[in-house]
Simulated assay, not measured.
Amino acid sequence: MTNWWPPLMLVGSWLALLALLALTVTLAYLPLGSFNSAVAIVIAAIKATIVAVFFMELRDRGARLLIFAGAGLFWLGILLWLGLMDFMTRAPA
């Protein structure tokens, strides 16, 4: 009989993601003013880190894969920055 139970680390990271989801939903209903978006982005970054480290198994990989993952994040940042600059420099209608 094979062991079909998932490793405890995956279950723990899944529970952490569920807890962060509950925190995001709870904080969405609190009147935080301008900090609402900042808190949501920080929580989303923590969730993305958990997914990358545990589910994509980046913690067990070599330096080359980490460099490519970082390059992908860098490229995403460039695209978001360029899109934001287009939005910020348009004249109001």
Rank of each mutant, 00 (worst) to 15 (best):
M1R: 12
T2R: 12
T2P: 10
T2I: 04
T2D: 02
N3H: 11
N3G: 08
W4K: 08
W4V: 05
W4M: 03
W4E: 05
W5M: 07
P6F: 07
P6I: 05
L10K: 13
L10H: 09
V11S: 10
V11N: 12
V11M: 11
G12Y: 00
S13K: 01
S13F: 04
L15I: 06
A16P: 03
A19R: 06
L21T: 10
L21C: 03
A22W: 02
A22H: 00
A22C: 04
A22R: 07
L23V: 15
L23G: 04
T24F: 03
V25W: 03
T26H: 12
L27I: 10
L27V: 13
L27M: 15
L27W: 08
L27P: 00
A28P: 02
Y29P: 00
L30N: 02
L32Q: 05
G33I: 05
G33F: 02
G33M: 11
S34A: 13
N36K: 15
V39N: 02
V39I: 15
V39A: 10
A40L: 05
A40Q: 11
I41S: 03
V42P: 00
V42C: 06
I43A: 05
I43V: 15
A44F: 04
A45E: 00
A48E: 01
T49I: 10
I50D: 00
V51Y: 09
A52G: 11
V53I: 08
F54L: 01
F54K: 02
F55M: 07
M56H: 10
M56Y: 13
M56F: 12
L58S: 07
R59I: 01
R59Y: 09
D60H: 14
D60P: 01
R61N: 04
G62C: 07
G62K: 11
R64T: 13
R64D: 07
R64P: 00
L65F: 06
L66A: 11
L66T: 09
I67N: 05
I67F: 10
F68A: 03
A69F: 08
A69I: 04
G70H: 04
A71S: 12
A71H: 01
L73I: 12
L73E: 04
F74P: 01
F74V: 12
W75T: 14
W75S: 14
L76R: 05
L76A: 12
G77P: 07
L79Y: 01
L80F: 06
L80G: 10
L80Q: 08
W81R: 13
W81A: 14
W81Y: 12
W81K: 13
W81P: 00
L82S: 13
L82I: 09
L82H: 13
G83Q: 08
G83L: 05
L84W: 09
L84F: 13
D86E: 13
D86R: 14
F87Y: 14
T89Y: 01
R90V: 07
A91N: 11
A91H: 08
P92R: 10
P92A: 11
A93R: 10
A93C: 00
